[in-house]
Design a protein around this nucleic acid. Structure first.
Length: 420
RNA sequence: GUGACCAUAGCUCAGCUUGGUUAGAGCAUCUGGUUGUGGCCCAGAAGGUCAUGGGUUCAAGUCCCAUUGGUCACCCCA
């Protein structure tokens, strides 16, 4: 038997309602904030991600689905959306059409990691990007949108973490200071962190190893070495969050894995999922557009993992989706009337009702059980004495009362069903 | 990429420790419980090469090994 590839999974009809529900909440919130949907290809030239996300990042160096197509072009299934959106933004000169572009997306992503709770190789993210302004209000807007979506889904157990990475100059200065500090404690670092010392020194803050954490407790913090502009920017973000009733904590150790961030970074974590508890992450990236060949356009954005969000919703039991119903089930009382039943079903469907009928020539009892299972609001009986008199019988499945109608007067039947 | 745990019906699981006739249950499915009416209830049916391959043994779902797949955690991220 051929099975779905490791880390991928089917979203079955029984799963669809919660996905649709989530997608609706997401697109409604984004619409309220005037973000416009954008859809970009699922695969791009590999170079886009290498340049945009950063060669040294884990995503690019070991997680991408990269292959040569038949024309020997290296292509990659998108591991995240920002690079693609920025590419489209540049390619179509969107900055010439609008001074600020506020964009959102809902899309599958691909990363070749070992699956675990809340992590898949094909997973889904929604997210937003605002391109064209360095206003800290937009940084705050991202966090507010994400938080509002989570709240509308009924999630509690949330922590909003924010930090500022400042601008590259102050960050580079700080890295030297941190390097100096760590050189004095180098021997006590774990093997992993010794590697990070070379590749991405800030990430040592992320280490879960106790011996690393002990050293990092007393390490100088980036936030204490920010330039004045960056501090002011960060203050405005915090004020905006306070004014919008977003509870947050400043986490000076929050360092994001992607190269393109500057200024604000943030993350929302949930205590209701497994170890992969980050529901969304994002930040400002004022240098990315230029890096990818566009103009000097600042940007800010975030992405949220939909599987993790749904997992949190399930664990907190926040979604109570109503049962799926159909308007009408058509029962044939006589086997030779199934064709008439089918034609009636087609006509009723065309008039806008959700209608099902029997295709297995089953007994009336079996048809009724089916109607019940499908939560049919009404059942229409076709056949028997009434049919000989030119009538059909409509039964209300909640109250059980029945009414006769002329078999050709479908409008009356439709009105009756609609009226309830 | 590393580690731990797991694999019996469509689903959730019992049986494995102490190998021994036809491998069970609940839910789901299907059929029936009088002529043409659901839910509840009752009766019955169908559904398993016990993940795959090898080994030990008179005998393996049960013990051992390998493979594959899954789960969770690390790394990292959404």
């Amino acid at each position: 038997m051929i099975k779905a590839i490791t880390g991928t999974r089917d979203i079955l009809p029984s799963d669809i309602p919660k996905w649709k529900y989530l997608e609706n909440v997401v697109s409604n919130v984004f619409a309220n904030f005037n973000y416009k949907e954008i859809r970009t290809p699922v695969f791009e030239e590999t170079a886009l991600f290498a340049r945009g996300i950063g060669e040294a990042t884990d995503i690019v160096s070991k997680e991408m689905y990269t292959f040569l197509d038949r024309s020997e072009t290296s292509v990659t299934l998108k591991p995240e959306m920002t690079a693609g959106v920025v590419r489209a933004f540049i390619e179509h000169s969107l900055d010439k059409k609008l001074s600020i572009n506020k964009l959102y997306y809902i899309s599958p992503m691909f990363r070749q990691e070992r699956p675990q709770a809340g992590r898949f190789r094909q997973f889904h993210q929604f997210g937003a990007e605002a391109l064209g302004s360095n206003d800290p209000m937009l940084d705050a807007e991202m966090i507010i949108m994400a938080y509002d979506i989570f709240k509308q889904l009924g999630l509690k157990n949330l922590i909003v973490k924010i930090n500022s990475l400042g601008v590259p100059e102050s960050r580079e200065n700080y890295k030297l200071i941190l390097k100096k500090y760590l050189q004095n404690h180098f021997d006590q670092l774990t093997q992993e962190s010794k590697k990070r010392f070379e590749t991405n020194i800030l990430r040592i803050f992320d280490s879960k190893e106790e011996q690393d954490q002990k050293i990092m407790e007393n390490a100088p913090l980036l936030i204490e070495h920010l330039d004045n502009d960056s501090l002011e920017h960060f203050d405005k973000v915090k004020q905006a969050l306070l004014a919008s009733c977003i509870p947050f904590e400043v986490d000076p150790k929050l360092v994001r894995g992607l190269d393109y961030y500057s200024h604000t970074t943030f993350e929302v974590v949930s205590g209701s999922v497994g170890a992969q508890s980050s529901l969304c992450g994002g930040g400002r990236y004022n240098l990315l557009v230029k890096e990818l060949g566009g103009g000097d356009v600042p940007g800010v954005g975030f992405a949220a993992g939909m599987e993790r969000i749904l997992l949190a919703c399930e664990n907190e039991k926040t979604l109570n989706l109503g049962e799926e119903k159909i308007d009408l089930y058509i029962v044939s009382l006589d086997k030779n009337l199934t064709y008439f039943a089918f034609q009636t079903a087609i006509n009723m469907r065309r008039s806008g009702l959700s209608v099902e009928t029997d295709y297995l020539a089953r007994s009336v009892k079996a048809q009724m059980r089916e109607a019940n299972k499908l939560n049919a609001k009404y059942v229409l009986f076709i056949g028997g004495d009434e049919f000989l008199k030119g009538q059909v019988v409509l039964k209300n499945m909640t109250g059980s009362e029945q009414n006769n109608f002329a078999k050709d007067d479908l409008n009356k039947i439709t009105d009756k069903i609609r009226g309830s």
